[in-house]
Design a protein around this nucleic acid. Structure first.
Lengths: 245, 245
DNA sequence: GATTAAAATTGACGCGCCGTCAATAATGAC
DNA sequence: GTCATTATTGACGGCGCGTCAATTTTAATC
């Protein structure tokens, strides 16, 4: 086991601190509030030292993205392993998404930044590959659920419609929801259902529309939701997830 | 009729030019490529003059957003007036969205910028109100279609689900789609259906899932699509819309 | 056409931020 | 204790935003 010198430990700890400080800045004021000078100031090292860890501002954003995305992927994989019907498993992904967001309310701000081509283009190829690997493994886990559903007969797709089409629908709903909600303009909020329930309703409708059985009219998916939290994500308190907000 | 002095005409023309130049900059390189200094340079006036038209960089973005959004709203209103079943009308909104995007490929880049709270918070209240008014009239037109569908019996919503829930689903799908596609990362593009068709499929599934009749299994909505373009948007060439890409 | 008040235009300035780099200090191997 | 390697510093060049006092242009009036 390679034991670390005090110096090396200092370096590791500093990197952690940089990321934490940066995350806080983005959370409070978006990309504009993130400043390399301010990071240096807050961690009490010079700017040059910060640049020893990250080659640019975008590199920091990319690192943050990868960090949180890895956790997200891990949660999705756990969701996909849920023991239940295939539709319950795909539902579990939606639940995981919600639980994740309560833990990392900053992630979507970062994701919207990081997915702008510009960010990763300014980053080392190493980090680019890491990002692609993570995203890919997330997709793969989810794709497997759809494939299973098809082979189990729970889902019959029309001629010429690929598996991932269903996935893409759920993905779009989630991204759209988070994007819309992150702009906290009251005029948009209309007379909507409270936050997460509106996304949940759309999940139900989309999956029903694709004919993924058992349909929401034949099954109590709110009960499934509670079972999913209890069994796949026991470390989460259902209260904290605020499913009704 | 108030005739304009040469000076006033110059000012109006200059404002047009500023917006055009700014739009081009955002289109080519996003928010980062937009620079007040460069605008001044390109229109051959000093920076101070640019600031006579717009109070800040964000103000320019806001103006661009309002401009394009107004056109978008107008197209949606035309879509809602389409003569056909209620579901055809809501489909027409999706078609209008597509036609609009082909005309203004830069709009979603701008929308994603403009909806970040930060932008409009740095803008005059006048512009903020204008934005809210436009967004509201867009929502209202669409909401009317849903209300009609419910009262005509084409759509029955479950207990406690408000009208706009359906709208919110379509809206999320569209925003999600455009957001995902605007990050042109090949790894995400998976084995998807070509661009717009994947959004179309999800529209169909979502509306089927909400039970909006006639269902896609009972009606040829691709034929409706062509009729919609021909009747509601005759100025568009169906070729240009690239529905298959 | 001359006069003059109001409006428009200019560009230099202060400030903050990014990323670099030569100079300096700390580390640890021998 | 010596010295090569590695880490740290902060001043610097460059760029962009938004301001403002000074200057020019406009157009209304005599």
């Amino acid at each position: 086991m390679p034991t670390l010198t005090p110096k090396q430990r200092e370096i590791v700890g500093r990197e952690r601190k940089i990321l934490d400080v940066a995350r806080g800045m983005i959370l409070e004021g978006g990309h504009g509030a993130l400043s390399m000078d301010r990071i240096a100031e807050e961690i009490d090292y010079s700017k040059g030292t910060v640049y020893q860890h990250f080659s640019s501002k975008e590199d920091v954003v990319a690192a943050l993205f990868i960090e949180t995305c890895a956790q997200r992927t891990a949660m999705f994989q756990r969701a996909c392993a849920f023991r239940g019907t295939t539709r319950e498993r795909v539902t579990a992904i939606g639940v995981a998404d919600r639980l994740f967001v309560t833990r990392h309310p900053d992630h979507f701000r970062i994701e919207n930044l990081a997915d702008l081509d510009i960010v990763f283009s300014k980053t080392s190829t190493q980090r680019q590959e890491m990002r692609n690997r993570i995203k890919k493994s997330m997709m793969q886990a989810m794709d497997r659920v759809v494939a299973e559903a098809v082979s189990a007969g729970d889902l019959e797709l029309a001629e010429g419609v690929p598996h991932c089409q269903v996935l893409y629908g759920l993905w779009s709903l989630s991204v759209g929801h988070h994007t819309i909600r992150s702009s906290r303009d009251p005029s948009e909020q209309m007379a909507l259902l409270p936050g997460w329930l509106s996304l949940w309703q759309n999940y139900l409708a989309l999956l029903d529309g694709y004919g993924w059985t058992p349909l929401s009219t034949q099954w109590d998916y709110l009960a499934s939701r509670d079972r999913i939290v209890a069994e796949a994500f026991p470390e989460f308190d259902p209260e904290d997830a605020q499913f009704d907000r």
